[in-house]
Design a binder for these strands. Structure first.
Lengths: 124, 124
DNA sequence: ACTTGTACCATTACCACACATGGAACATAT
DNA sequence: ATATGTTCCATGTGTGGTAATGGTACAAGT
């Protein structure tokens, strides 16, 4: 597996990692059950902070594309091929679009939405 | 009618204006049909920028608490007393709470929600 | 001992937004 | 002329989040 990180790319590093690993799974360059490099190992190879790799792995595990097994390392998820096609981002986007349209119809300002949204997210 | 602006108050000036005018309507210190000071006049009296007063008036008009009649000035809305009780902000907050909870249940990160929310708002 | 993922602490840079301010112009009416 | 609300331009300040960095530490297993 080969991963290339472009520092000048406006896309965050952790996102580049997520996308390239998903592509590797979709392109069958890595198969379900295959081991992935450890967080520290990959961080070292790419000359990137380990926290950045950890963030990418965490997102990939949430999407059930990889599986973290603690001290045993990280592996490609059994149903990775299916799960890496599911784009939770696209789904969330459509949900937000619908919600925001309803809000605008109700006369809520974009500015008010931003403020309310942040207040609720921060639990205030 | 008497309006007091507190610069040190963390509450934005335009919000202070909106609240105090709503209170004046609810407390029947100004009646439906009564004229309000012009934007420039009030801005001058309070030593505040006219844009700030215009913003407050715009919000009050959206809530149907006041009515702008162009060159003729601004007046208290006929159904002002009813409308200034309706708190669109509280309603929006509850809507957002419900929506955000559903998103979290679906496994969407707060960070992803922020990004998606902004993308949709900006039409990207 | 060594490595695994994970969890805290922290700082730095950047960027987007809210808020407020100022100037200028417009159409509409007295 | 004067005044109304409205709309465009622009700037500055403060806040807050994202992203990335670094260090330290832990439990669990080889």
């Amino acid at each position: 597996m080969q991963i290339i990180i472009d520092i000048d790319d406006p896309v965050p590093i952790f996102s580049q990692l997520v996308e390239q690993i998903k592509q590797a799974v979709a392109g069958e360059k890595i198969q379900p059950g295959d081991p992935l490099p450890s967080i520290r190992q990959l961080a070292n190879d790419l000359d990137v902070n380990s926290k950045t790799v950890a963030k990418a792995y965490k997102l990939l595990e949430r999407d059930a594309v990889i599986q973290s097994r603690g001290y045993r390392g990280t592996f490609v998820h059994p149903e990775a091929k299916d799960n890496c096609q599911i784009d939770i981002k696209a789904w969330a986007t459509s949900q937000f679009e619908e919600f925001i349209l309803a809000m605008r119809d109700a006369g809520v300002t974009d500015s008010e939405m931003r403020i309310t949204f942040n207040n609720v997210l921060n639990g205030k």
